[in-house]
Simulated scan of single mutants.
Amino acid sequence: MQINWEGVMPAITTKFTSDDQLDLEMFEVNVKAQMDAGVSALILGGTLGEASTLSFEEKKTLIIETVRIVEGKIPVIINIAEQTTKGAIEAAQVAKECGAKGLMMLPPMRYKANSYETVTYFRAVANSTELPIMIYNNPIDYGIEVTLDMLEELLDCDNIQAVKESTRDISNITRIKSRFGDRLKVFTGVDTLGLESVFMGADGWVAGLVCAFPAETVAIYKLAKAGRAEEAIAIYRWFLPLLELDINPQLVQNIKLAEVATKIGTENVRAPRLPLQGNERERVLKIIKEGVATRPVLPEYKSL
């Protein structure tokens, strides 16, 4: 399966039971809700997936289960966030063996690599696999910026095909498109810039609140791409208070609370994360409650 780098791709959450085991039953409920809404791929193993807390066997189980659930209808993409080049190459190999069809790659974790080291890291992994790759550029959260010059050095790797743009500088979408055209597909990775990014030419949206509100997220994207801007903006204005829950250190807890409200998830997180408490919990629940109570009636969007 070739990946068509466009559309909404959820950074899917990992579901846990109350006794801290993988909740594969609720995980399947959520995956099927995403597919029914019309997402174009699923991304496992990101921050929202609490990948840093998962064992090697749990990661393999999630890949295999997701591949089983989707039945080849949409690609499964694995996020790689490793401390070593060797570890990243091994993770890419395991992803392919388990049935994944693509990779999303962060720069090396913990060690703040310089530009030369970062490019060498990406190139080594790309040359080790046939899987198509989306580079994840998020210097705010991970401390390393993948500049346009660095991206240009990587274009000799044919399987580096897309970039997830999370610098919060929306003009970077224009810079990438102006310099590389369609050689690199561009995804926004910031929920609160989702619609704006699509209007500026982003090919897709790696989304967070889609985990709780899949139909609304896909509808915004498809309406915008179809030129129905006013309809997209109206839904997006309703959505923005919820989308802001993604730009928060407790984004996992926030989004899982929203999944509970829409009945496609549970609140369970893995320690050291803990469920929200006190005033912050009440604040987030109020936003979610208001969002659910005013949830818009969507136009038919799937055929757009």
Rank of each mutant, 00 (worst) to 15 (best):
N79I: 13
I255K: 14
L251Y: 12
I80L: 12
W205N: 04
N114M: 06
E145M: 12
N248W: 01
A202S: 05
L184G: 01
A41W: 11
L209G: 01
P10T: 07
L22M: 03
G181A: 04
A212L: 08
L257E: 12
E57W: 15
I144N: 07
E267M: 08
L274N: 12
K59R: 15
S18H: 13
I89T: 04
V67D: 09
M105N: 14
G99P: 10
P139Y: 10
G204V: 03
L274Q: 12
K86A: 01
V210A: 11
S40P: 10
I12H: 07
L54C: 03
I133V: 06
L240Q: 11
V284I: 13
S55R: 07
L242Y: 09
E65T: 14
L298W: 13
A33P: 02
A37C: 01
L131H: 09
K289C: 08
F56E: 06
M35T: 07
E71K: 15
D20M: 08
L22F: 00
T118Q: 01
E97Q: 15
K177M: 04
L54N: 05
V31R: 02
A88T: 00
T61M: 11
A229H: 05
D20W: 05
V76H: 00
A95E: 04
L48V: 15
F122I: 01
P108R: 11
V94R: 15
N138D: 06
M35F: 12
E153F: 13
D203K: 13
M9N: 10
S55I: 00
V260A: 03
L243G: 02
D182E: 09
Q277P: 01
E300P: 00
T262Q: 05
L245V: 04
L274R: 07
G194Y: 14
A11R: 03
N127K: 14
S171V: 03
R168T: 11
Q83M: 06
C211Q: 13
A91M: 06
I173A: 00
V125E: 01
L242C: 02
E90Y: 08
V297D: 13
D19C: 08
G201I: 01
E82V: 15
V252I: 11
Q93F: 14
E130S: 12
L155A: 08
L257V: 10
K101E: 14
V39N: 02
E267K: 13
L106A: 14
A271Y: 05
L103N: 02
R281K: 12
G49D: 04
